[in-house]
Design a protein around this nucleic acid. Structure first.
Length: 297
DNA sequence: CCACGGCCTGATTC
DNA sequence: AGAATCAGGCCGT
C-alpha cells in the first residue's frame, strides 16, 4: 500500500492533542502514539518531533502543500494576536496557543456541526464516524472510510441516520445533503461572498442557524472573521465584558475589536472557558448590549 | 422582537 | 437504583 511521509518545520507552538480534541474536528483519534484521522480519501497519521510536524499518509497522497494548508502552517498563532493584548494576559491563555485552527472540508464540517446541537464531542464523533462507516468509500489499506459525499448521504433513509444516535438532527443532515448535492449549490461562491451574505445563504439550510453557519464558515470555509456564539462563548464573553443582559448579536459585535482573526481567538476562549471555569473581566471591560442605564444622581 | 418548549439520546446527577 | 437533568442549537408558536 502507498505511504508517503511529509515533514514540516513549525513556527510557534503546536499541540496536536489540543488541536484535535478541542471540538473543531471529529475524526482524529490517538492510535499507537500518533494521531490518525481520515482527511479526504486518505488516512493521515500525525505526530511531532524536535524538527516539527510529521504526517504519514496512507492512500492517495494529496501532496505536501495540501497537508501544509490543512494544518494552517502558513499562519502561525502569533499572527492572530495583534488586536488581542488583553486576552493574551488571561490566566491559561498562553498555554493554548498550540491549538491550531484546521482548514477542513466544508461539507464534512457542515454535516458534523449539524450534529452538534445540544450534544457533545464524543457523541458528535460517533455520528460522524457512523456516517462514514455506512456511506463512505473505504480508504485502501485501512479499516476506515472517507466522509460520504452529499449525494451519497442524500440517498440515505432517515431511520438509518437515526440509528447512528444523532436523533432529531437526522432530518437536518438529510435535508442539507439534498440541498448541497443540488447543482446550484456552490461552496466556492460562499468562500468569496461577503460574510453576511454567506451566513444568510448557509442559514437557508435546514438545521442551520447563526451558530452553525459561523462554525461552517470558520472551520470549513477559511473565514476567520467569524465569532460563533455558543453557550460557552456566550458565558466567556459576558464575563470578559462584565455584561449581564447582552444578546448574542451584541457579543458578536463586541468581538469585532479582536480583529480579522477573531475566529481563532474564539476557539481558544471556547476551550479556556469550557475547561477552566469563569473568566475574569478585562481591565477595560464595559457591559455590552441592553444593560440598564445607571441612574444619574 | 422576545420567550419558551420540544426535539433524540446518552452521560451525569440526585 | 431509577428518575430527573443537561448537553457546543434550531424551529415553531
Amino acid at each position: 500500500m502507498p505511504r508517503t511521509r511529509h515533514r514540516f518545520p513549525v513556527e510557534g507552538p503546536l499541540d496536536l492533542s489540543l488541536t484535535f480534541t478541542c471540538g473543531q474536528a471529529f475524526r482524529w483519534r490517538l492510535e499507537e502514539g500518533a494521531w490518525s484521522g481520515v482527511v479526504g480519501g486518505a488516512l493521515w497519521r500525525a505526530s511531532t518531533d524536535a524538527r516539527g510536524l510529521v504526517v504519514d499518509v496512507d492512500g492517495a497522497d494529496p501532496g505536501a502543500e495540501v497537508v501544509h494548508r490543512y494544518f494552517r502552517l502558513d499562519q502561525p498563532p502569533e499572527r492572530f494576536l495583534a488586536q488581542a493584548e488583553e486576552l493574551r494576559a488571561l490566566p491559561g491563555f498562553a498555554a493554548l496557543l498550540g491549538l491550531r485552527l484546521l482548514r477542513q472540508e466544508p461539507w464534512e464540517t457542515l454535516a458534523s456541526f449539524l450534529c452538534s446541537a445540544a450534544s457533545n464531542v464524543r457523541k458528535i464523533s460517533g455520528g460522524v464516524e457512523g456516517m462514514a462507516a455506512a456511506w463512505g468509500d473505504p480508504v485502501r489499506g485501512t479499516d476506515r472510510r472517507a466522509f460520504p459525499s452529499p449525494s451519497a448521504l442524500a440517498g440515505a433513509e432517515e431511520r438509518d441516520l437515526r440509528a447512528l444516535g444523532i436523533g432529531f438532527r437526522a432530518p437536518y443532515v438529510l435535508g442539507a445533503a439534498r440541498r448541497v448535492a443540488a447543482r446550484d449549490w456552490s461552496w466556492e461562491a460562499l468562500r468569496r461572498a461577503p460574510i453576511e451574505e454567506a451566513r444568510t445563504t448557509l442559514r437557508t439550510l435546514p438545521g442551520v442557524g447563526p451558530k452553525i453557519a459561523d462554525c461552517v464558515l470558520l472551520f470549513g470555509l477559511d473565514r476567520l472573521d467569524t465569532y460563533p456564539v455558543d453557550r460557552w462563548i456566550r458565558r466567556a464573553t459576558m464575563e470578559l465584558t462584565a455584561s449581564t443582559r447582552a444578546r448574542d448579536e451584541d457579543l458578536e459585535r463586541w468581538s469585532l475589536r479582536l480583529g480579522p482573526g477573531r475566529g481563532y481567538l474564539q476557539q481558544i476562549l471556547f476551550h479556556l472557558r469550557r475547561t477552566g471555569g469563569p473568566l475574569p473581566a478585562l481591565a477595560a471591560a464595559r457591559p455590552v448590549g441592553r444593560e440598564r442605564r445607571r441612574r444619574s444622581a
